[in-house]
């Protein structure tokens, strides 16, 4: 298999860091530092989970409709481990491991199912996980949810939004590096081969079932890692937070950003987290009762999403179909 040339930086990726810094600086000026940093924390955390979707959906071509369940596994693993006295930093890899194990389980039906049918099985997996978290009341406190303390390392607590943003961005950077390397490796090439033509990939000696499972394990680990951070940033987790709406939100994130590119996860997270907040701020400027109209943010956000999909069908980070073919994809 020849080496994919797409690892050269596309324009979207080159611009991404500057776009993020610009957005952060503008948000700080307009809204205040604490608010902007809170958003940066969530953008980075969402981007890590979004990387998982990019691997599973964009790279391996599998329909994954239950990514939030993998985030939930990471969040609960982190909460339980920290509650049991494990230092949060040491618990992070275990949170990722919980997501990876969940990913491996969710991928099992891929041995017999494909396409939308497999997508349905991931949906069922998400429902099972949510239900299991409710039923495992002695450990998870069931539907009542559980509180999670601040992220801490050797006595230092990430209590402020500045510290939380720094931790999230650092983890996102590490995740991007790891994903970048993976996509350049034979695993990445195998994922793309299975995505583009499963039969042809099998004829070339790639085992599709194992490759899909690898993608789900990596995607699950990233989602679990995001979940572990999420548990600390939100401070309270309950099974209902990780329902199908969250799964679809992550899927939407990847498609808005560009499911075939790593940068797509960050772009998508930026849109999913920041745009509704900007709309909320602009809404305050509307006169009288308009500013308080129920669901106004949702309507405006929907309009933004439709516009993005129409203007950038391959996502904000995605090039045209032709440039994808010419340069490969992934980074």
């Amino acid at each position: 298999m020849s080496r994919v040339r797409g690892v050269a930086r596309p324009a979207a990726l080159r611009l991404l860091p500057w776009a993020l810094v610009l957005a952060l600086a503008m948000a700080m000026l307009a809204l205040g530092a604490d608010y902007a940093l809170g958003k940066a924390t969530l953008v980075a955390t969402y981007a890590i989970a979004g990387l998982g979707v990019v691997i599973v959906v964009g790279q391996a071509g599998q329909i994954g409709l239950g990514q939030a369940a993998l985030v939930a596994l990471g969040a609960y693993a982190q909460a339980l481990l920290v509650g049991a006295g494990v230092p949060p930093l040491a618990a992070l890899p275990l949170g990722a491991l919980a997501g990876a194990l969940g990913g491996a389980l969710a991928s099992l039906p891929a041995r017999r199912l494909g396409g939308l049918y497999f997508g349905m099985s991931t949906l069922a997996f998400a429902l099972i996980v949510e239900e299991a978290l409710v039923r495992a009341e002695p450990w998870t406190q069931g539907a009542a949810g559980m509180a999670v303390g601040a992220f801490a390392v050797l006595g230092w607590r990430a209590a402020s939004t500045l510290e939380q943003a720094a931790v999230s961005l650092a983890v996102l950077a590490l995740a991007l590096v790891a994903c970048h390397r993976l996509l350049r490796s034979r695993h990445g090439r195998a994922w793309r081969a299975v995505r583009d033509d499963e039969v042809a990939a099998a004829a070339c000696g790639v085992a599709p079932a194992a490759v899909k499972m690898q993608a789900f394990i990596v995607g699950g680990a990233l989602s679990g890692l995001a979940g572990a951070l999420y548990a600390h940033w939100i401070g309270f987790i309950s099974p209902e937070q990780f329902g199908l709406v969250f799964s679809f939100e992550l899927l939407m994130l990847a498609f808005i950003g560009g499911a075939r590119r790593l940068a797509g996860a960050a772009w998508g997270a930026l849109v999913i987290v920041v745009i509704p907040q900007l709309i909320a701020v602009l809404r305050d400027q509307l006169p009288g009762d308009w500013a308080r109209a129920a669901g106004l943010e949702l309507v405006l956000f929907g309009a933004v999403i439709v516009a993005v999909v129409l203007l950038r069908p391959a996502g904000l980070a995605g090039g045209s179909a032709r440039s994808d073919a010419a340069h490969g994809d992934g980074a």
């Binding site: 860091p17 810094v21 940093l37 939004t161 500045l162 950077a173």
Partner: peptide, 25 residues
């Protein structure tokens, strides 16, 4: 993706973050 660019981004981001003010009273 070249990593110097990523590092530059995070350095820039952290610089921007370090300008954070205290929460309003």
């Amino acid at each position: 993706m070249r990593f110097p660019s990523v590092l530059r981004f995070f350095r820039g981001a952290l610089l921007a973050l370090s300008a954070a003010a205290l929460p309003a009273a």
